[in-house]
């Protein structure tokens, strides 16, 4: 059993983010303990991606702050892995699956130092964990959507992080990859890691996650799925358009 960690995985306090003068997140407070899988759920435009990117320090908030693993985002950098939405990169880029997985080791290397045999091994191991070994030397353009998502996960695994922030990893992937991804998340949790996952499919929230954050510009609710994932909260987050239909 991993020992009880001294710090929360994520502490967010009074976080307000705006694009120009339009607020996209209003005064968010969050305390997420380590060692759990957290689904972030909310309608389009709820600020899910913005929340993740602000936690990572990619966006400067208007007010408030985030701490990761008890440290400032900058200091926690090497212990945090980020999986952006698959659609945000150019998959025509001249690189192989191994090249992309190798980028997961770049953060440890820092500026100037080049990846060597050790890093290559780590990247290969990461690819193996997502079942992509036989595609290691395939150009990323030639991979299916599910395989591309696996490569992204391999890159995150190669970061050997304690906290994983994933933006819609389940978007547009096949059932096999979805199952493999869930398996992988559980494996990470069993090793003591924490994952925050932006998620769209409301049906599978209860099955996949321990905690859920319901978001719609403001925080509607956050906590263990059994307590928080209620019809009332879903209605509050999605309005009348609750796609769950229950």
């Amino acid at each position: 059993m991993p020992e009880t960690p001294a710090h929360n995985a994520v502490d967010v306090s009074d976080l307000t983010v705006s694009y120009r003068e339009k607020p996209v997140l209003w005064d968010i407070d969050l305390e997420i303990p380590q060692g759990i899988l957290v689904g972030i759920v909310g309608p389009n435009g709820a600020g899910k991606t913005t929340l993740i990117q602000t936690i990572l320090g990619l966006i400067t908030p208007l007010a408030g702050s985030a701490r990761l693993l008890g440290q400032s985002p900058k200091k926690a950098l090497k212990q945090v892995a980020y999986v952006p939405q698959r659609g945000t990169v150019d998959w025509d880029f001249p690189a192989t699956a191994l090249d992309v997985a190798l980028m997961g080791t770049y953060g440890r290397l820092g500026w100037f130092r080049r990846p060597g045999a050790k890093e290559r091994n780590e990247a290969n191991e990461a690819l193996e964990r997502v079942g992509m070994t036989s595609f290691a030397h395939r150009q990323i353009r030639q991979l299916s959507g599910g395989q591309q998502q696996r490569v992204f996960l391999a890159r995150a695994l190669a970061q050997k992080a304690k906290l994983y922030l994933m933006d819609e990893p389940f978007q547009g992937i096949d059932a096999t990859t979805e199952a493999a991804l869930v398996e992988l998340l559980r494996d990470l949790r069993n090793r003591g890691a924490t994952a925050l996952v932006v998620h769209h499919d409301l049906q599978s929230v209860k099955e996949y996650f321990d905690w859920v954050v319901l978001l719609n510009i403001r925080k509607i609710a956050a906590g263990p799925v059994e307590e928080v994932y209620t019809e009332a909260n879903l209605k509050a987050a999605f309005g009348a358009r609750v796609p769950l239909g229950k």
């Binding site: 950098l77 980020y82 090249d99 980028m103 770049y106 290397l109």
Partner: peptide, 19 residues
């Protein structure tokens, strides 16, 4: 080379890992 590669392919990720 490494920095140019990762910032060209995935700038958001590159920033997240400290480049």
């Amino acid at each position: 080379y490494k920095e140019l590669k990762v910032t060209t392919f995935d700038p958001a990720f590159a920033k997240a890992i400290g480049f």
